[in-house]
Amino acid sequence: MPEKLLEEAENAAEKRKAQLEKEAPLEPRGVWMREGMKAYLCGTLGQQFDAWQRRLSALSAADAYFSQQIGLEAIEKKMDALEEEVKATLLASESLSPRRSPGYGNMPLSFSGEIIAKLNATKILGVSLTASGLMVPSKSVTAICEIKREEENG
């Protein structure tokens, strides 16, 4: 009995998430530029996604949670797409390392500000930092990819 119940509960959750996915205002945008052997990337779901999420979370914790998942998946997908755009411009002898974001590994969180400035992302995408250094809109990502030459890889 509980197993069937668990299954049905899971189905209900999946159904709700799928429904929200259809309603979500998903218009991810991004910019990137290459400078020497580095590519700088910034992507965002914009303010409207945040507004939608705030509205959902006023009434439902489950919806708030699902919208969070939907947002994270969508922004990751956008960043993947930006990476593909960079790859398409590389020479045959060059390759792209996976992207790294400020706040992970040894790259300080504050580096986000520099990437945003470099890409003029405040003007182009509306991405900026709060006084406490958080990136807004909340579903925004900055990242760096290293570009490698084949001879370096041996």
Binding site: P2, L6, A9, E10, A12, A13, S60, A62, Y65
Partner: peptide
């Protein structure tokens, strides 16, 4: 019931929150 299942790792956050709603 849902809370206990969540704590035991049988149910997950989405189910807990759907139940809460």
């Amino acid at each position: 019931n849902v809370g206990l299942r969540f704590e035991k790792g049988e149910a997950f956050l989405p189910q807990l929150l759907m139940a809460a709603d």
